[in-house]
């Protein structure tokens, strides 16, 4: 029943933090970070997930690799539900690259220890095989073999991130989830890492989930983009399509807000930038209070994510989508 082109299918995935009751029986506050996300990841694509802080994109990413367990919903890998089987089962196929390269490397282990761990614990390789693979791996990410015996603090941010990428690849995954992989890097080395990711993807036939708040970066790497707002996906479309003519007013606001060299904005839009209270979510569309196109029906119910008039790949959760410019 699963079309072969989908590597991962996410169905109604939700994650709630807190909740329950205290010893005295009073309710604890409950926060829903991801509220019913459904998404397909197609083989060989780079799916960009964009959204601002607090929109749930990092929680979604952590659930994808099993670092966090969903409250409800399913993550199907080649048709098999792995959402509750924990890190190990998912880590074989799905790996993760962290935002902060330096803090994601153990300061007291050599690069060799760090890179060998996935080979030993996930692939069960012997020491000879590990050694061969290590050398190939470290060259693949443009680092020299003698770096293997150094400690993380001896590396710059860009080098450390290449080590982070090497660690993700050491487990030979099919899918790599990249959580803001260049945000912590200096502008001058971002391109190095982006170019490296591009080459590795081509050479190894990888599928990427690329999470970022930087629209310019996502535009340059993604083939398809999903926009998240307040724990929900509000729009998905092929990257070009989305950036050229967005359907959802939030996507439009995001695109217009990104600063571009040599383009000065005219005047203030008066947008508050405030998210709804996550402990007391509004009944309708969470973007309605900020939305210039909001009408009464927006505040009554959440619109479904569905195809509008731009073909079945371009879907938006909006009652009053923007028209093509």
């Amino acid at each position: 029943m699963t079309p072969p082109s989908n590597v991962i299918e996410i169905r109604d995935l939700a994650r709630t933090f807190g909740g329950g009751r205290t010893i005295l029986g009073t309710k604890k506050p409950q926060l829903t970070a991801v509220r019913g996300v459904s998404l397909d990841l197609r083989k060989g694509e780079t799916l960009g997930i964009v959204g601002e802080s607090g929109c749930g994109k990092s929680t979604l990413a952590r659930m994808l690799v099993g670092l966090d367990r969903p409250t409800s919903g399913a993550i199907r890998l080649d048709g098999k539900d792995l959402s509750s089987s924990g890190t190990r089962a998912l880590a074989r196929r799905v790996q993760y690259v962290f935002q902060d390269p330096v803090s994601s490397l153990n300061p007291r282990q050599t690069i060799r220890d760090i890179l060998e761990a996935p080979m030993r614990h996930l692939l069960g390789l012997g020491s000879k095989e590990r050694k061969e693979r290590l050398e190939k791996l470290i060259e693949d990410v443009n680092l020299r073999p003698e770096f293997l015996d150094r400690y993380p603090h001896e590396f710059s941010g860009g080098q450390a991130q290449r080590i982070g990428i090497a660690r993700a690849l050491a487990a030979e995954p099919d899918v790599v989830v990249l959580d803001e992989p260049v945000s912590a890097l200096d502008v001058s080395v971002q391109a190095q890492v982006l170019n490296l990711l591009d080459r590795l993807k081509r050479e190894r036939g990888l599928t990427y989930v690329f999470i970022s708040h930087d629209l310019a970066v996502v535009e340059s790497v993604a083939t398809r983009v999903a926009v998240m707002y307040f724990g929900e996906i509000v729009e998905t479309a092929p990257a070009r399509e989305l950036f050229r003519a967005p359907l959802h007013p939030y996507t439009n606001l995001l695109i217009r807000s990104a600063p571009v060299p040599n383009r000065k904005r005219q005047k203030a839009s008066g947008d508050s930038g405030e998210l709804p209270d996550p402990y007391d979510p509004p009944p309708g569309c969470p973007f309605a209070p900020r939305c210039p196109r909001a009408e009464d029906n927006c505040r009554a119910a959440m619109p479904a994510l569905e195809a509008k008039d731009r073909g079945k790949d371009h879907r938006a959760a909006c009652f009053h989508p923007l028209s093509r410019r």
Binding site: V187, V189, Q190, A191, A216, S220, V260
Partner: peptide, 18 residues
């Protein structure tokens, strides 16, 4: 420094790292 950063609206541009 200007060329190494991706710019909105120019996804095709080749990025040159410093």
């Amino acid at each position: 420094l200007i060329d190494c950063v991706p710019v909105m609206g120019e996804p095709e541009r080749r990025l040159d790292a410093v």
